[in-house]
């Protein structure tokens, strides 16, 4: 059966992966409208890990690790298409640069970070050294930056580079004291997304999506999906792209 996409509530939504499906929770301001949560996309027989969103074309991107692939589907409905399926080990993070129209992903079996156009063409390896368990990745087109984290047991790290892969630096040393602890009450966070005043994260032990205040770490809301199983990647969808440009969009 072909996986289909359900209609989405206008406005901002949280979307998160839960094995064979991608769920969405409408947001009203920063509040999760839990009673309106619905399945956005069924992908039976797959384990979906990463989700990402392209605000320009209102398209959802996701990764499957059972038959490793990166796919996408328009939020308004219609066909899903597989973008990358060759030379993939374990794609666990996807980032979209909606300005330059590129996508980035981490692979924790091949231990690398790759980039391609949004349709999967012009694929190129960006980094393949010093990566052990890379997972989350995020693009910041306004500042031309790419951030990712590696949970390598012997040296977890968060790194940053330019969107073209130059100027790579380790940006947060996990053992430094420049960090601030926001909340101690987390159980097993898997993925995190930021929106307005809040942070939203998926948790493996609670099998839930949790909303916390970004400034004081107070837990505000919890969403328990109808089906109890692990929750994976999470991201925010917006009806319109934030107004921003960078040198690639003008070139």
């Amino acid at each position: 059966p072909r996986p289909g996409i359900g209609p989405l509530t206008p406005g901002s939504n949280l979307i998160f992966a839960q094995s064979g499906r991608i769920e969405h929770i409408p947001l009203e301001g920063n509040r999760m409208k839990r009673e309106e949560a619905r399945t956005l996309l069924h992908v039976p027989g797959k384990v979906v890990i990463a989700v990402a969103f392209d605000c320009m074309e209102q398209t959802v991107y996701w990764s499957d690790i059972t038959q490793p692939a990166i796919s996408r589907a328009k939020m308004e409905g219609g066909q899903t298409s597989v973008l990358v399926s060759r030379d993939l080990g374990s794609p666990e993070g996807i980032a979209i640069d909606h300005v330059s129209r590129n996508m980035y992903w981490t692979d924790s079996i091949l231990d690398r970070i790759e980039v391609s156009r949004l349709d999967g063409s012009h694929r190129r390896i960006l980094f393949e050294d010093d990566l052990i368990n890379p997972r989350p990745i995020i693009a910041d087109p306004a500042n031309g930056l790419l951030y990712w984290a590696d949970w390598n047991r012997d040296g977890p790290k968060i790194e940053r580079s330019s969107l073209d892969g130059t100027r790579k630096v380790e940006c947060i040393d996990p053992f430094s004291h420049v960090r601030r602890k926001l909340s101690e009450a987390v159980h097993y966070p898997f993925a995190i997304a930021s929106h307005g005043r809040n942070l939203y994260y998926t948790d493996w032990i609670r099998e839930a999506v949790v909303a916390v205040d970004r400034h004081d770490g107070t837990e505000l809301q919890e969403f328990l999906p109808q089906r109890r199983s692990r929750t994976y990647g999470i991201t925010i969808t917006y009806p319109q792209c934030p107004a921003e440009v960078n040198y690639c969009s003008r070139n």
Partner: peptide, 24 residues
């Protein structure tokens, strides 16, 4: 039953177990 696709999805799987496919 998913209206758009006709897929049948189990909604009450035992914890830790998926219905169409075993959980990771």
């Amino acid at each position: 039953q998913v209206p758009e696709t006709g897929d049948v999805v189990c909604t009450n799987c035992p914890k830790g177990v998926r219905c169409e496919l075993c959980e990771d």
